[in-house]
Amino acid sequence: MFSVTGLNGASSNGSINVKDAGLIGMITLRGDLKSDAIAKVIKVVTGTNIPDQRQCVFTSKGATAWMSPDELLVMVDYESVDATIAKMEKSLQGVHSLIVNVSDARAVFELTGSSIRDVISKGSPADMSSKILPVGEVRRTRIAQLAVAFWFTSDTTARLVCFRSVAGYVMDWLENASEKGSEVGFH
C-alpha cells in the first residue's frame, strides 16, 4: 500500500523553516506508567526508559514522549509499527493497557530556526521561555484553536504534532506566522 502524510511533503521557508517530517510510526500506549511490565515493553521497542513527567526521550531505535499521567506516545519506524504493536500486545497480555496505531491519524512538522519560540507564541498560550520549556520537554497545548503537542530537539529544532485532519490548516498557520518581516525577537 502507498502511504502519504497529511502534509504530503509541504514546506515553507520564512523566519523559520517548516517542513513535513515524513511518515513516522506513532503508537499511543495507555496504562499504569509505574508498572514494570510497561517499562519493560518500552525498553524493548524504543530502547528508552519511561520518560519522566512531560519529557521526551530518544534512542537511535525510537522515542517515547510523556503525554499524560497514564499515556505515552511511542515513536518508531513507520514500517515497523504493526510488528511493534504485535510485540507490545503480546508482552502486555493480561496487563490493563491500551495500544493504538495513530501513525496516520497525526501530522508531524519539523521546525528549524532560531525563532521557533516566537513563532509558536503568536498563537499559543504556552509559556515558550526556554526555562519553562527546555529542550526535551513536551508541551501539549493549542495553536489557534487546535490541539497540538511540541518539543524542542535542540535549541533551534523542534517537532510539532497535530491531528492529520487539520494538518493543512496548521501548515498555513505556521507559514503565515513565520512570514519574513514579521519577526518578534522576544525569546
Partner: peptide
C-alpha cells in the same frame, strides 16, 4: 495537578 503545568483558561 496532574501534569504540573501552569496553563491559562483557554487551555482548560
Amino acid at each position: 495537578p496532574n501534569c504540573e503545568i501552569t496553563a491559562d483558561e483557554t487551555d482548560l
